[in-house]
Design a protein around this nucleic acid. Sequence first.
DNA 1: ATAGCGCCCTGGTGGC
DNA 2: TGCCACCAGGGCGCTA
Length: 309
Amino acid sequence: MPELPEVETVRRTLAPRLAGRRVQAVAVAAADAVGRPAGDPEALARGLRGLVFLPPGRRGKYLFLPLAEGAGGPPRRVLVVHLRMTGRLQVCPGGQPPEPHTHVRLALDDGRELRFRDVRRFGRLYLFRAHELGRLLAEACGIPAAAAGAGEDGGRLPADAPPGLRQLGPEPFAPEAEEALAAALARRRAPVKAVLLDQRVLAGVGNIYADEALHRAGIHPATPAAALGRSQARDLLAALRQVLAEAVAAGGTSVRDYVDGQGRPGAMQERLRVYGRAGRPCPACGTPVAKATVAGRGSHFCPRCQPPP
DNA sequence: ATAGCGCCCTGGTGGC
DNA sequence: TGCCACCAGGGCGCTA
C-alpha cells in the first residue's frame, strides 16, 4: 500500500528514467483511471503529447509529474498520480504487450513506456495546468510558484481537483509538523490512530506506518487523541519520522502489490514490528501482537508496550 | 465541525 | 478439490 515512503521511492526511481523524456503518445485503456478531466481521456492525451518530463515531485501520497515544452523550461502541465491501494507506476521497455490491468500508457521518446497499472482500480491520474496548482507544485517539486505562473495568493485549486489535494497537511518532516500534530491531537476526541491517518493533519501517513509509529512511541491506537500530552505528541512525531525515514531507506514496504518505478519490491516489510504480525511476538517484549479494528482500520499493537487507554 | 460508516474494486485466503 | 464468504483499505460522500 503506497504511503509516503513508497511514493517517495517511486519518485526517486522514476526520476532518472523520466526526466528529459518527451511524451510521444498516450493510450488510455480505462477511462475511469483519469480523474481529471473526468470522463475525457482524449483531453489527457492532448494535454501531454509533445511535452517533456521535468524531475518528479511528491506531496503526501500524491506523485507530481511536471512537464514542460522543452527540457529545463517552465512547467506547463502536471500529471498528479495517487496510487491508492494497488496502483503501480513504472517505466517499462516498449514494444511489449501491456501487463494485465494496465490502464494508461505514455510512450516516451526513448522507446520506453510509462505505465500505470492498478488491479483494484482505486488509483487516479489528474492532469493540471501548472499554474492551477500554485503553492502545491512548489512544495512538491521545489519549483518556485512564480515559475509555475501562480498568483500571489498561491492560487486556489480548480473545483474538479480531488478534495484531499486541497486540504493536505504538512509533510511529517516539515518543521511545522510538530505544531500541526500537537494542535490536532489536543483538539480531537477521535482515537489517535484516526488523527494520524487524517491527511489534513499530516500528509502521507497510512495504516502501516501509523501502526508502526504508535508501537515505537508506546501509545495504544485507540487512545483518545486529546488524552495525549504535549510530550507524548512530540514522542509520537519523533517515532513517526524515525519509521518513515527507515522505510524510505529500505525502499518501502511490499506486503502485497507495491513495487517501485523499476518494478522492484521494497525491504521494509522485514523490519516492521507490529503491522501484519498479529499473534507473533512483539520484538520489544515478546508478547503476542494483537489486532483490532480502530478508526475502521485493522490495527496492530503490542498489548504490553502499548497499554490500552 | 466532527466522528463514524458504507462504498468502491479485485485477488488472495481460509473455512467447510 | 471446489466453492465462496470474507478481507485488505485510502479517500470520499453521506449521516447524525
